[in-house]
Amino acid sequence: MNGDAQLRGAVLRAAAGAAKDTPGVAFLRPGFGELLRGTVAGRASRTGSAAAPSAVRNGRVAGVRAEHGPGPGEWRLRVHLAVRRGHRALDVTRAVRPRVVAAVREVLGEASGEEGGGAPTVTVTVTVTDIT
């Protein structure tokens, strides 16, 4: 695994952790590909295979997508989540966004070895896909 893939994995894990820890978030919503991979991994684990699900699989984390922006140090993240019943979706998305930005900036700052300096540009889009 090269440095860029490791950094992307760290960014995805940080974003997912920050989003999941936000009050009102029920869970991160996996995409269709993760659902299919989860089914295959579930079958493999029931049959005794060593293929167990992991936090980052093939450079992906369920419910979070990350890509480099057009400029250096720019990242764009998309978070898909379900909101707990009794919480307003707007309030939850407003709470998730700054938490994810802060967590990702912390990871990127550690990776670059910079203290203070120019903070990386992190753009986060939050989509509510369900209310549970």
Rank of each mutant, 00 (worst) to 15 (best):
G3Q: 15
G3W: 14
A5F: 13
A5Y: 12
Q6M: 13
L7A: 01
L7F: 03
L7P: 00
R8T: 08
R8M: 10
G9N: 03
G9M: 06
G9P: 02
A10R: 09
R13V: 07
R13E: 09
A14Q: 03
A15V: 07
A15S: 06
A16Q: 03
G17L: 08
G17A: 08
A19N: 06
A19D: 04
A19I: 07
A19K: 04
K20D: 11
D21N: 15
D21S: 14
T22L: 03
T22N: 01
P23H: 06
P23L: 11
F27M: 12
F27H: 10
F27I: 08
F27R: 13
L28A: 04
L28Y: 05
R29N: 07
P30M: 08
F32L: 14
F32I: 12
G33R: 15
G33L: 15
E34Q: 09
E34T: 07
V40S: 04
A41R: 03
A41D: 03
R43A: 15
R43W: 15
A44M: 10
S45C: 15
R46W: 08
G48N: 05
S49G: 15
S49T: 09
A51Q: 12
A51H: 11
A51P: 07
V56S: 01
V56G: 00
V56F: 00
R57K: 10
N58C: 11
G63N: 05
G63W: 05
V64E: 00
A66C: 01
A66H: 00
H68L: 13
G69W: 05
P70I: 09
P72C: 11
P72L: 13
G73N: 05
G73D: 03
E74T: 10
R76T: 07
R78I: 09
L81V: 05
L81I: 02
A82T: 08
R85Y: 15
R85F: 15
R85M: 15
G86N: 07
G86Q: 07
H87N: 02
H87L: 04
R88Q: 09
R88E: 09
L90P: 06
L90A: 14
L90D: 12
D91R: 04
D91A: 04
D91S: 01
D91W: 02
V92C: 05
V92P: 00
T93F: 02
T93D: 01
R94F: 10
R94D: 12
A95D: 07
A95Y: 05
A95N: 06
V96F: 08
R97H: 10
R97C: 05
P98K: 05
R99H: 09
V100C: 10
V101L: 11
A102T: 10
R105V: 11
E106V: 12
L108C: 08
E110C: 11
E110A: 13
A111D: 11
A111K: 06
G113I: 04
G113Y: 02
E114C: 14
E114T: 14
E115V: 12
E115Y: 08
G116P: 06
G117C: 11
G117L: 14
G117D: 14
G118Y: 11
A119T: 09
P120S: 01
T121F: 12
V122W: 03
V122F: 03
V122H: 01
V126L: 09
T127H: 12
T127F: 10
V128R: 02
V128W: 02
V128E: 02
I131L: 09
T132P: 14
T132E: 13
T132I: 13
